[in-house]
Amino acid sequence: MSQNVEILQKKRTRIGIFKFRESILTIVIIGLGGVLSLLTPYFLTSSNISAVLIGLSAEGLVTIGMVMVMIAGEIDLSVGGIMALSSVVAGALFLSGVNIWLSAVVGFVLGALSGFVNGWLVGTRKINSFIITLAMMGMTRGIAYILTQGSPLAIGGVPKLFESFGGGDILGIPIFALIFLSCAVVGEFCLRKVKPFREFYFVGSNVTSARLTGIDVGKTKMRVFILSAMLASLAGILTLSRFLVATPITGTGVELRAIAAAVIGGTSFSGGEGTILGAVLGVLIVNLINNALILLNVSVYWQSFVNGLLLLVVVLIDNFTQKRSQ
């Protein structure tokens, strides 16, 4: 007994909130921030910081869901479409005379329902999630295009309170970013300590064993797709509140940016591992680099190339270190 307990205690000191990878990412972020503040006086201004924060919040919310889906061994390509669907449905309902809060709730529920359909088809019908969510991506964005006929809907005259969720701030910190960060903290806590969330890791790590040990794999997968869709819908509604425009191009390409951030943060593409903390740091790095490019007057056309290069470098480092440890 004493031996095992000793080992247990020795190990505990080493396993804190930050794992090795997350520590490295944090150092990179601090380094990047340091270099940027030296290169340009604009970086450390509160307006620039809050612009960066508000700019990454929608993507960040979607990434939280993506990490959970990937931990469970699946993929969700429909998050961008769901963002557009929830935001356009809410906007269109408001313009037809419905109360904005009720409109937002309906938009949110519809988005979550799309996630339920994803989860039901992947979990109980056992169809590949790449295909199902690809179909759902087309359908949700399609509905957004049909409802708007392709042109953005401006929603004027919404209550100030609704506007403040996407555009307001508390002590200089954007409320949108605060919502994203609270979701990240709660999500990380749940993944570590709450049973129905922790089971995502079991299902993603070895789905056959998960079944043998009595975990309800179908329900677990359904749960994760509903969560992902709920976070995407929330991102869609908050984006509507930020710009006060409902457009069918909301969230275009966000699914791929979320996957990239998750992978940079250490989430495995084959399931079973990943943390929200790592993915949030991944989102931060990508957005800081994009901010740097803007502040340093590099043409915006370089962004996509640099983001791709960053992902490639991270994956190559992973590949290299994994081969060495084997």
Binding site: Y201, F202, S205, N206, S209, A210, L212, T213, S268, G272
Partner: peptide, 11 residues
């Protein structure tokens, strides 16, 4: 070997 490679011994 019905095990979960990514998880700890306890889990």
């Amino acid at each position: 070997l019905a095990i979960f490679p990514h998880l700890s011994v306890v889990e």
